[in-house]
């Protein structure tokens, strides 16, 4: 079979709370999933479900207190700074908010060469790389010497994607990268994600609250709820015929952009909620 790129097993992330002898806050309560090369794994959930924390744990930005995260068989959940530096060639990130993920006082060129400076790449090579990256994300070459504020949200997100691609990573953690964008911009940026994946074979851990986005992009989908994965499997299966009650509720809650189908969908949702309530009652009585 194909090798596994990233293997997340029983990961626990806890944040200490202020105050004497307070129980730490458990953002992740033992989460497992795996990603294969060139695959997109969608991570869907509502706010506070822990989906962003899982992404940050993979990136080494969240305190992993239990379980393991293995990249190509190597444990990385407690990687040192030096190890992280090596890993920056393998794992990269695109964040949600295109307005705060780029330093407002740096030019696009400076932003894109920042990851390269760690590698001590020569100036000329770096410049060529910047030109190449701008091409890849379909931004004009003139963009290099401009400041982020001169770009729209969609363009900024392209810059962020270019920065992630700078070191030719094998895995990109995408934390809600299209959520802050307008509908049509969102569609174009998603096409860019797919196109880059087809060309470079990069894998994505794609975190989003939007079911339609995840469905469109992901080969496999994990649904998170209260720090746990409640459903995990083939994208078509999970987004088409969900089995877990929460996933069902989640999918029934999203309104369908068609008045007549939405009217039916709404009625279905109410029926589902009643059914689940009854089941809960029966479970309680039993």
């Amino acid at each position: 079979m194909t090798e596994t790129l990233l293997d997340v097993k029983d990961v626990v992330v806890e944040y200490p709370l202020k105050g004497f002898r307070r129980e730490p806050f458990k953002a992740l309560k033992g989460v497992s999933l795996d990603i294969r090369p060139g695959e997109t794994v969608g991570l869907v959930g509502e706010s506070g479900s822990g989906k962003t924390t899982l992404g940050r744990a993979v990136l080494g930005l969240a305190p992993v207190t239990g379980g393991s995260i293995k990249y190509r068989g190597e444990e990385i959940s407690k990687a040192s700074r030096a190890k992280r530096k090596e890993l920056s060639h393998e794992i990269q990130v695109v964040f949600q908010d295109p307005y705060t993920s780029l330093n407002p006082s740096m030019t696009i060129e400076q932003i894109l060469t920042e990851p390269l400076t760690v590698r001590k790449v020569e100036r000329q090579t770096a410049n060529k790389r910047v030109a190449d990256l701008l091409d890849q994300v379909r931004l004009p070459q003139g963009a290099a010497h401009r400041l982020p504020r001169e770009f729209s949200g969609g363009q900024r997100q392209r810059v962020a994607i270019a920065r992630a691609l700078a070191l030719d990573p094998k895995l990109i953690v995408c934390d809600e990268p299209v959520s802050a964008l307008d509908l049509s911009t969102q569609a174009r940026v998603m096409e860019l994600f797919i196109e880059i994946q087809e060309r470079t074979g990069v894998a994505y851990l794609f975190v989003s609250h939007d079911l339609a986005v995840v469905r469109h992009l992901s080969h496999r989908v994990a649904v998170m709820y209260h720090g746990e994965i409640v459903e995990w499997g083939d994208g078509e299966q999970v987004t088409g015929a969900p089995e877990h009650p929460y996933t069902q509720r989640l999918f029934m809650a999203a309104p369908i952009p068609d008045p007549d189908r939405q009217a039916k969908h709404r009625a279905d949702r109410i029926r589902l909620l009643e059914l689940q309530n009854q089941q809960d009652l029966q479970a309680g009585a039993a």
Binding site: A187, Q197, E198, R215, H216, S218, R220, G235, E236
Partner: peptide, 23 residues
Amino acid sequence: LDAILEDTAPRGQYNPAGTTAEP
């Protein structure tokens, strides 16, 4: 309306050969 994703098909199966089905 065309940019709405709800009615688009899901991504499909993962194809390890690297050439996934047409996007």
